[in-house]
Simulated scan of single mutants.
Amino acid sequence: MSLLKITHHPPLRLLGCIHQPLFPFITPFTVPSRTLIQSGYRRPGKPREDQFPWQKIKFDLSKGLQGIKNHFTLLKNEFLGRWVGPEGKPILEHMLEQNRVVWEFRGPESLQNWTVSSDEEIGGQSRVYLKLGKNDNTCFLYGTLGSSPPKDGLTRYSGYCTMRSKQLLASFDRKKHHDWSSFNTLHLRIRGDGRPWMVNITAETYFSHQKDDIYSYFLYTRGGPYWQDVKIPFSKFFLTHRGRIQDDQHPLWLDKINTIGFTLGDKADGPFQLEIDYIGVCKDYAHTEDFAYEVYKRNPEV
């Protein structure tokens, strides 16, 4: 007859073992407060914002009442414009329209729809300014380009200046898009100094990670005192993401255009200038190309 030896074990501490690492020689994995997918793009050299969005709001009763009045005025114009036709135009005029001037500069209030920026925001040496031209009939963009990167230890490349239109807003700050589906060509009347520029068009996207997608094409200014009429087909614009050309190309969605912009970054230090008379769209019946670049089949035939 064998005797059983009964040993008393200490009680299991299940909750305590959770807080104690199983392998003390491995450093614990720290998860950042916001993952890379959820966080927005922050330029090098720009400090991180620690404030919540509601802490940036400045409360003012008089401005709030004026803002509500303006929004209801926009809402009224939206309802009345739909009875007339698309964008407040008669249907027949909208169907026969072949040319449309989207942006023109005929006064100081026309510059409020545009914003300028440069690498000065990250410590660069470029400077850009925007004003009206002679007789207040044109837009004059000028400044100085400097390609020397800031000495912050993070930025490797620098030297750019941009001009971009602001996002159209409907009543109560709802997004409003440009509908260019009836046109196929971008029409510009400009006067530059011989520098090459980049024309950038942004369209509405379905997913948040596509917010930095931009359709770009080149703009070569002739230089000299004469005006230059430039027509760029929308089929020539190629897809880029944060300055990098994407392999998967697809045509530009012309029914939901958000903004248009101009970027200078030719690495030629010195002054520059670009004068714009108007920016419009047109219908060129001689241009029949759908898309100028190769489109890959998602399900290729075997």
Rank of each mutant, 00 (worst) to 15 (best):
T144W: 15
L154H: 14
S158Y: 00
T138V: 12
C139G: 06
Y160L: 03
Y157F: 10
L130Q: 13
G133L: 01
Y157G: 00
Y142G: 07
L141C: 04
N137A: 14
G146V: 04
C161E: 01
K151V: 13
P150D: 03
T155N: 07
T155L: 03
S158R: 02
C139P: 09
F140S: 07
Y157L: 06
G133V: 04
P149L: 07
S147R: 08
S158V: 06
K151H: 11
Y142F: 11
T144F: 13
G143N: 06
L141A: 01
K151G: 08
K131L: 08
D136Q: 15
P150M: 04
S158T: 02
G153V: 06
G143W: 00
Y142R: 10
P149V: 04
R156I: 15
R156L: 08
D152R: 05
L141Q: 01
Y142K: 11
L141N: 02
N135V: 12
L130T: 07
G153F: 08
D152S: 08
L132S: 06
G133T: 02
S148R: 14
L154Q: 13
L130A: 08
G146M: 02
L132H: 11
S147I: 09
L154R: 11
L141F: 06
S147D: 07
G153K: 09
G133Q: 01
K151C: 12
T144G: 13
T144C: 15
T144S: 15
L130S: 10
D136F: 14
S147L: 04
K151Q: 15
G133S: 04
G153M: 05
G153A: 07
D152W: 01
Y160D: 09
L154F: 02
L154T: 11
K134M: 07
D152F: 04
Y142E: 05
G159R: 00
D136I: 07
Y160A: 00
K131R: 14
Y142L: 01
C161I: 14
L130N: 03
G146H: 03
K134T: 12
R156F: 12
N135H: 12
F140C: 05
N137H: 14
G159E: 04
K131N: 15
T155P: 11
D136Y: 13
N137E: 15
F140N: 12
G153Y: 06
